[in-house]
Design a protein around this nucleic acid. Structure first.
Lengths: 237, 237
DNA sequence: TCAAAAGTGTTAACCATACACCCATGA
DNA sequence: TCATGGGTGTATGGTTAACACTTTTGA
């Protein structure tokens, strides 16, 4: 019986398992995705990716690859979808588990660009991508919109301190629309998730906008509930 | 360069890839999950699962396994999550892509029970499960609740023709609560997704309830938008 | 002083929720 | 005739969404 068990496993075909990450950033104007030209396919832009190692969990591997390639750690990382079309990698059949990640673009931009052939692309102006990476990005954008509509994810894309107008611009970019600033700030502030700081942003506007920061204790507890952030009329998936 | 490419693939460790399905059904009273005792581990209940074949996509494989084991086809099937903890299968490292499925329990019950060691378990009374299958079920329940709150999934669990009271009982079971029947029927009917039939259900109640059926053209188009089915106050994830 | 962005308040329509009574029928 | 479940309506409070003016300050 023990033997039968092992035999059943041995008959099975194993597959390569890759991880690919859709890394989102926000530069103050538009929503961007970080792409690289990597070793295997030097001519085509692709997502950051790598192989699962024998001692790693999936998310752990995705985090490692993200760290190895960008120096980023402690970032928002969520499993997106497993892609397994038999033809997706024309060389060897590979299953890819895609993760999407939200990073604070300003903290890391220079490091990334120096260390790798990496570039931020606007989600509305993407180059052709390797394999099914284009599908992965499309799905990731859908998922980001879906999730950010009801959970306070947006902050992950902004610096620790940010202004309400900055946050609104982020949501404008994510949903490719223009929210009403009065309703937007009322809705955001009504969550009680933001702490107003004494400091004002200098340089961008004459008047200057107050900085806010996330109340991290509330943030963690609220991330698993519904918030209804975004006007329902703006949503269509 | 072509050689370097192949080498890079060859160095990589491949893994077994399994598919496991959480199959939900509704018997009119409570939400159930279909479990089997399968060959490899005959003593423990487990989800229905199988191995990815070389020529199959992931969802295709999940559908095949579901069909092979139960005779069910054309059922609601959605990818849930990829599970890849290094220790999850103690015999050989296996990545499992879990799918969840919604089936019309009445259509198939007898076939299933005859052909396999399969049994429906209430989600509140599950036996110990193989490997991490318990986690898979937990996640599937969360996902079902999450999704059914805003998308009209519920119908997948009922026969073609059903009554509003039946539908309410289903939602009561899914959310383990009791919805107000007046508000419930108003909300459901306001979607314009249901077509009232002339026929009444006989036998269950004295008065009899009208049968409805899903307007399938509207159903498809609406499944990708938000509906806000469930009172917000009932939700907590 | 003026241009540019920040900040704030009101109203009307709609939606969510709570709640109670009559109806149809088989036993 | 009565018990059981089916079916409907209304009132209240809260939320959404549309909308415009004042404030601050650097150039």
């Amino acid at each position: 019986m023990q033997q039968r068990m092992l035999d059943q496993y041995k008959e099975q075909q194993p597959y390569l398992l890759a991880l690919d990450s859709i890394i989102f950033g926000f530069d103050g104007e538009s929503l961007k995705v970080l792409l690289v030209k990597r070793g295997v396919e030097e001519k085509t832009w692709s997502l950051m990716g790598g192989w699962l190692q024998p001692n790693e969990g999936l998310e752990q591997a995705a985090a490692r690859i993200l760290f190895d390639l960008t120096g980023l750690s402690n970032v928002y990382l969520e499993q997106l979808y497993a892609f397994g079309d038999p033809q997706r990698d024309p060389i060897v059949r590979t299953i890819s588990v895609a993760y999407f990640s939200l990073v604070k673009i300003a903290d890391y931009e220079t490091k990334i660009s120096e260390a790798f052939q990496a570039r931020w692309f606007s989600i509305y102006d993407l180059p052709p991508l390797l394999f099914d990476h284009g599908d992965m990005v499309d799905l990731a954008i859908k998922r980001l919109r879906y999730k950010a509509a009801q959970h306070p994810l947006g902050f992950e894309l902004l610096p620790e301190k940010f202004t309400i107008p900055q946050l609104k611009k982020l949501y404008d970019a994510v949903y490719n629309t223009e929210f009403d600033k009065r309703n937007f700030s009322r809705k955001i502030l009504s969550t009680n998730l933001l702490i107003k700081l004494d400091e004002k942003q200098k340089g961008f506007s004459k008047r200057g906008a107050y900085f806010y920061q996330v109340d991290s204790s509330k943030y963690r507890e609220i991330n698993n509930s519904f918030l209804n952030f975004i006007p329902t009329s703006e949503l269509a998936f």
